[in-house]
C-alpha cells in the first residue's frame, strides 16, 4: 500500500516497532535470512574446499577453492548416467500429470459429468493419500503388470499420484472463468475441444505453468518412488545415485556435498526460470482456500 511510506506511518512504525521494542522487524528479518542461508552457504563452502584441507581441519573454512569435488562426485557417483535416467522419466511424468489435470479440471468445472461430485471427491481424495501407504502394492503390482523398472511406467504412476492436486488447483482456476464466455463460443458453433484449447487453456495458462513447474520439482525430488520402482542399479536416478554416494564415501564429505549440490542444481535452475509462476500459483492457492 502506498501509505506504508508516508512520514506518518513511518513514524508510527518506528514508535510501535522500532525504538521501544528490543528487536525491530529489520533485526528479525536479518536473523531469519542468516539462519536460512548459513547452512546452505556452509555446505557450498564444504563442497568447494580441497579434500586435503578438509581432512586437515574439517571445521575450518580456509584452504582455497576447488571445483575438483564436483568432478569427482560426478565421476565416482556415475551422476552422468543417473541424470539421463532422471531425464527419461521426470519430464514425461510432469507433462503427463499436468495434461491429465488440465483436462480433468476443465471437465469438472465446466462440463456435464455424470456423478460429478462423487468423481471430483474421488480425485481429491487421492491428494491426501500418502505415497508410503500404497508403496507396497504399487511395487508388487508393478512387478506383475510390468511398470517396475520402466521409465515410462514410473512417469505414468507419477501422473496418477501428482495429477490429483493439479486437477483440484486447475478446477478452481477454470471455475473462475465466466460461463458466458464458453456459452457464446458454443453459440458460434465451436466444439468442446476447440473451446478448451482456444479459450479455456490460454486463459488459465499461467496456472498450468505453475502446475508443470511444481510437478517437475516434486517428481524430481521424489526419491521413494524412484528407489522402489526403478530398483535396478543400471536405471538409478540422480536422487538415488547421490544418496548412494553418501554411503560409499563417508570420509570424503566435500565430494558427497558436491554431489548433493549437483543433484539440486537443476531444480534451482527451474526455479529461477519459473519463479514467477510458482509464487503466483502459491498466492492463488492460498487465497482460494
Amino acid at each position: 500500500m502506498a501509505s506504508a511510506s508516508t512520514p506518518l506511518s513511518k513514524a508510527v512504525a518506528l514508535k510501535a516497532f522500532g525504538h521501544k521494542s528490543a528487536v525491530g522487524p529489520r533485526t528479525v528479518a536479518v536473523v531469519a535470512v542468516v539462519a536460512v542461508l548459513f547452512p546452505l552457504a556452509w555446505v557450498i563452502r564444504v563442497a568447494a574446499r580441497p579434500t586435503e584441507a578438509y581432512v586437515r581441519n574439517p571445521n575450518g573454512i580456509g584452504g582455497g577453492f576447488t571445483l575438483g569435488n564436483f568432478a569427482s562426485a560426478w565421476r565416482e557417483g556415475l551422476l552422468g548416467p543417473a541424470l539421463l535416467h532422471t531425464l527419461y522419466t521426470v519430464p514425461l511424468g510432469a507433462v503427463l500429470a499436468t495434461v491429465v489435470a488440465a483436462f480433468a479440471g476443465y471437465g469438472f468445472a465446466k462440463l456435464r459429468v455424470p456423478f460429478r461430485r462423487f468423481l471430483l471427491g474421488f480425485v481429491i481424495m487421492a491428494i491426501a493419500i500418502p505415497i508410503p501407504s500404497i508403496i507396497i502394492p504399487l511395487f508388487n503390482e508393478g512387478l506383475d503388470i510390468g511398470y517396475t523398472n520402466n521409465y515410462i511406467g514410473l512417469s505414468i504412476v507419477c501422473a496418477a499420484l501428482y495429477g490429483s492436486w493439479g486437477t483440484f488447483f486447475l478446477y478452481g482456476q477454470y471455475k473462475g472463468l465466466p460461463d458466458a464466455l464458453i456459452d457464446s463460443a458454443h453459440m458460434d458453433g465451436a466444439h468442446e475441444l476447440g473451446i478448451f484449447f482456444r479459450i479455456a487453456v490460454p486463459l488459465v495458462a499461467p496456472s498450468i505453468a505453475t502446475v508443470l513447474a511444481l510437478n517437475f520439482i516434486l517428481q524430481w525430488s521424489n526419491i521413494l518412488l524412484q528407489l522402489v520402482l526403478l530398483p535396478t542399479s543400471t536405471k538409478q536416478t540422480m536422487m538415488v545415485s547421490v544418496s548412494a554416494l553418501g554411503g560409499q564415501y563417508t570420509s570424503a564429505t566435500p565430494i558427497v556435498a558436491a554431489g548433493y549440490l549437483e543433484a539440486a542444481a537443476p531444480l534451482l535452475l527451474i526455479y529461477a526460470l519459473s519463479q514467477r509462476f510458482i509464487r503466483r500459483g502459491m498466492f492463488a492457492g492460498a487465497l482460494n482456500e
Binding site: 471437465g107 460429478r116 480425485v123 493419500i129 504399487l138 468442446e192
Partner: peptide, 16 residues
C-alpha cells in the same frame, strides 16, 4: 465431459 475427466479418474482408480 466423461472423456475430459476419464484419464485422471482412471489413473487414480488404478494407482491409488
Amino acid at each position: 465431459g466423461i472423456l475430459f475427466v476419464a484419464p485422471m479418474v482412471a489413473l487414480v482408480a488404478g494407482f491409488v
